[in-house]
Design a protein around this nucleic acid. Structure first.
Lengths: 187, 187
DNA sequence: CGTCAAGGTGAGGCACCCCTCCGGTTGCGG
DNA sequence: CCGCAACCGGAGGGGTGCCTCACCTTGACG
């Protein structure tokens, strides 16, 4: 098991360090995770800034997702991190909320410009992130660029013209939260 | 942990039976899985027959997926089963191959009729199954019908008339196989 | 060179889990 | 009522992982 659920003893072993030393530096798994993810998170936030600056609302929206998936594909831990919530950690809650705000921003701008269908909501994008996370896991070795194809397909679904009505309402914030906590324990 | 990776000791406990008894009836985890999944598999194959009989190729295609997802949503083990391969088990290989054939059948018929974009391949549907499997896991308690919305979105992506070119080729059969074996160990 | 704090170590207690195997139970035909 | 086969139970050996804690090293400074 790699990623967020990797064995701490295994990590220590690979790092050539004793388990006690690992615990000295990172008292909890979450401390280690945040330290390991720091560069990816910084990169994501940087790229988000850049993408927000793109004039074309569709390109901004598509580039945001493309960036996110690229980072997911490059880091197993980051991939896990994005689809989970860690209840009780203010730091990770803050990060997730920030990412959600960015999603809202590119999404709403694209919808206001009429290039993304209006019945899409934040929850749909978060769901897409869960889904792609699974797909990226599966294909990371065998077909590291496969996610690009699925993203392109999904973007076709998000485009405004000729949208068919959707049968269910989008997930609410509470439903999203519960689901992400649940992805923690399960699997 | 529930689903395919559930602890056998836990299953025995819940069944009010000793671990030895469980092993007597089901020598391997796969034996137990196949027994537990038997009704779902029968239902899937029945429904597949029925769906093949639908005249409208688009409705047949959409109904096939709708059925599959409904069954996935109703059974955690079945949900796991669909996105994994168990190397060395002829029985599960046969089942997976059979499902793949059904997918090919409804897909190709819809493409021949011009209602599904021609650049979709079997691998895209399998990928969709992986993705939805993750989503269904996440939302099974909180929003048990959420998968319908994602399926509707995906169907919009599969429709023929609004297709944009896809950047990567579809996954080959070997890539699919490797990925599904990989989903076994990881997570 | 002595002291002390900072950092590193890994055995050990606890909790699961896998799977085996031997002894106990049950119920049915004779 | 006996004997036997089919069935059941659960202790136990082996493995992994979590986390703690008492002990050991190192190096800076007076």
């Amino acid at each position: 098991m790699r990623g967020v659920d990797a064995s701490l003893e295994g990590i220590a072993r690979e790092a050539g360090v004793a388990i006690g030393t690992l615990y000295r530096h990172f008292p909890t798994r979450l401390d280690l995770l945040l330290a390991a993810l720091e560069p990816r998170l910084a990169e994501l936030l940087d790229e988000s800034e850049r993408v927000m600056g793109i004039d074309d609302p569709w390109r901004a929206f598509a580039s945001y997702l493309e960036n996110l998936f690229r980072l997911q594909a490059g880091d197993r831990g980051f991939n896990d991190f994005l689809s989970r919530r860690f209840p009780g950690s203010a730091e990770t809650e803050r990060l997730h909320d920030q990412i959600c705000e960015h999603i809202d921003e590119v999404l709403i701008r694209a919808q206001d410009a009429g290039v993304v269908r209006p019945d899409i909501a934040r929850g749909d994008i978060v769901t897409l992130i869960w889904s792609s996370s699974r797909m990226i896991d599966a294909t990371s070795v065998t077909a590291p660029n496969a996610w690009r194809r699925q993203l392109a397909l999904m973007l076709d679904a998000y485009r405004a013209p000729r949208a068919h009505p959707l049968p269910e309402p989008p997930l609410t914030d509470e439903q999203l939260y519960d689901a992400m906590v649940r992805l923690n324990a399960a699997d």
